[in-house]
Design a protein around this nucleic acid. Structure first.
Length: 566
RNA sequence: UGGGGCGUCGUCAAACUGGUAAGACACAGGACUUUGGAUCCUGCAUUUGGAGGUUCGAAUCCUCCCGCCCCAGCCA
């Protein structure tokens, strides 16, 4: 993994509780001091930044402690899963920078062994076939405060259960007519333990096993055994599975097999976005966004298209930490790690998003110059390139004010500014459109002795503007993105509104006719730049065409001036 | 009102078996600057949900209380 991020030495702090457990286990020689984790996504949707936290934990801990991490698809519900999702998940994990090497597994690989385990449980007298339908089952389960009732089918003989379970597998019974249940007890205060269903009849073609099976194991049964089969030592999952841990342990204990330790941590929440697959799916289906990879989505494919780097996401994951407290991380932390990385690696370029023509009246009509441009001041090894200059250029409309506010050190009548890496120019006048009153053209004179931007006499020039030579510029579309929601917590229903009511109508703004440096014309999709004084941008991977890149705003530069002068 | 978890700065998050509240983001000042970027300084919890108690000493131990999250899919 080649991080171009300055060493993350900010962690003088203690390690998180998960790593503390792993280290203690290594010290104690548990599992022979071995560390083996797994990332177990269900292929029923796209990965998002919350999954990135889990991936960084699972793969991160394995690599930190000399262990391994498997990728295992938890594909036990064929009605919701597909190969499309498995492919996107693999791509996203690789993009994030992690490698499962030859350890790509599917829970469906274990269907045969899982079935054997289920029969074993039956033989042990620890599972039975139950004929209760879904409604009855719910009724028998009891409530949070009242214990459940035992199924009337609970005391079938081992032989009968075995026979029935085999016939379930053979397809003799209709979907939903019977289940295989663990025989634990109906009076547990933990509802997970009230004779939970471990196999159901479901005639749905599976994306890997086709129609081989008409019964599928449930999560609780599958997960612990898959972990066990793979020799996992530490099984990390999110908080909502805490109650399930008892069942995880119970099943493994009954079968007397290798017993990994499940450890739960808090999932990631971010301000100004939603993180559930269901909500994200809704945004896609209702066309509130252009798709799973819309650059405003918190999906990994969305962030990638937006211009986020894997390094930034990994750094972010490290900084949010791992704990058990429900929390909501400020999106500005993610933006910070992004800027931190991009600042270090992104080549600079000049792009004028809201162009206004500026004429340097004393600059020779036909003259063209090639000026030296520093590619990245943060990285001298990036070197320099040439940028063309001429009498007429474009500057940003926001860089000129007829009546400048206090503290404004850009262009205004009489004011002198520096054109980055070019010349010092002084504003001598301007013209406006008589109909609209809009600034049409800014007039300036330049100081020929200031080539490169240095004041020959050392005079102070506060403002430095980006610009692009009019006759060399090319037009392009640039999309400005902002947060998708206007609320820190879009799920806030205190005023009776739903999350889609909080969508930010200004989250996407398309700018046409932006004027860019000619050298940007050959940008390849996905290439990232810092447009000086504006922000970080990347060429869109979907809508760019050869010679016609379309740029996405990845994240704006911080702007203290704008902040103080709203 | 059952069970399982969790409550430390605006937001994350440290503080090993009690020893006198890290760090980061954000925010606010200032320095510097050919990006109002970056960088660099400075400030930012007399206090750990609350109330008692034990102790020379408590975020850490005890008691009671308050608040928040999760669980009643043949989803994961």
């Amino acid at each position: 993994m080649n991080d171009n991020i300055p060493a993350e030495t900010d962690s003088t702090a203690g390690i998180d509780f998960v790593r503390a457990i792993v280290e203690r286990d290594i010290r104690d020689g548990k599992h022979g001091g071995r560390v083996h984790t797994r990332f177990p996504p269900e292929p029923n949707g796209y990965l998002h930044i919350g999954h990135a936290k889990a991936i960084c934990l699972d793969f991160g801990i394995a690599s930190e402690y000399g262990g391994k991490c498997n990728l295992r698809f938890d594909d036990t519900n064929p009605s919701k899963e597909s190969v499309e999702y498995t492919e996107s998940i693999k791509q996203d994990i690789r993009w994030l920078g992690f490698d499962w090497e030859d350890r790509l597994f599917y829970a469906s690989d274990y269907f045969g062994r899982l079935y054997e385990c289920a029969e074993q449980l039956v033989r042990l007298g620890r599972a039975f076939v139950c004929d209760l339908g879904p409604d009855e089952l719910r009724d028998y389960r009891g409530t949070l405060t009242q214990p459940g009732r035992e199924s009337p089918w609970r005391n079938r003989t081992v032989e009968e259960n075995l026979d029935l379970f085999r016939r379930m597998r053979a397809g003799e019974f209709p979907d939903g007519s019977r289940t295989l249940r663990a025989k634990i007890g109906m009076d547990s205060p933990n509802i997970c333990m009230r004779d939970p269903v471990i196999y159901r009849i479901l005639r749905a073609p599976h994306h890997r096993t086709g129609t081989d099976w008409c019964i599928y194991p449930m999560y609780d049964f599958t997960h612990c055994l898959s972990d066990s089969i793979e020799g996992i030592t530490h099984s990390f999952c999110t908080l909502e599975f805490e109650d399930n841990r008892v069942l995880y342990d119970w099943i493994l204990d009954q079968l007397g097999v290798h017993h990994p330790q499940q450890i739960e941590f808090a999932r990631l929440n971010l301000t100004y976005t939603v993180m559930s697959k269901r909500k994200l799916l809704q945004l896609v289906e209702e066309a509130r966004v252009s798709g799973w990879d819309d650059p405003r989505m918190p999906t990994l494919c969305g962030l990638r298209r937006r211009g986020y780097t894997p390094e930034a996401i990994r750094s972010f994951s490290k900084r949010v930490g791992i704990a058990k407290r429900d929390s909501v991380v400020d999106i500005s932390l993610l933006e910070h790690t992004l800027r931190e990385h991009l600042n270090a690696v992104a080549p600079r370029a000049m792009a004028v998003l809201h162009p206004v023509r500026l004429v340097i009246e004393n600059y020779p009509e036909e003259l063209e110059e090639e000026l030296d441009y520093v590619i990245n001041p943060e990285d001298p090894s990036a070197g320099t390139r040439k940028v063309p200059f001429s009498r007429e250029i474009y500057v940003d409309a926001d860089d000129f004010r007829e009546n400048p506010p206090k503290g404004y050190h850009r262009l205004s009548p009489g004011a002198e500014v520096r054109l980055r890496y070019a010349y010092l120019v002084r504003c001598t006048g301007f013209t406006t459109n008589p109909d609209t009153g809009q600034i049409e053209q800014i007039l300036c004179s330049y100081d020929p002795d200031s080539r490169g931007g240095d004041a020959p006499d050392g005079r102070k020039v506060r403002g430095t503007l980006h610009w692009v030579s009019a006759r060399h510029a090319f037009e392009a579309d640039v999309r400005l993105y902002d947060r998708l929601f206007t609320r820190e917590n879009p799920m806030d229903r205190s005023d009776g509104r739903v999350f889609t009511d909080h969508l930010n109508p200004e989250s996407l703004q398309v700018l046409r006719g932006c004027m860019l440096e000619p050298h940007l014309k050959s940008t390849a999709p996905g290439d990232r730049f810092q447009f000086e004084r504006t922000g970080y941008f990347c060429a869109d991977s979907v809508d760019s065409r050869p010679g016609h890149p379309v740029f996405n705003l990845t994240v704006p530069l911080k702007d203290r001036w704008a902040r103080r002068n709203p």
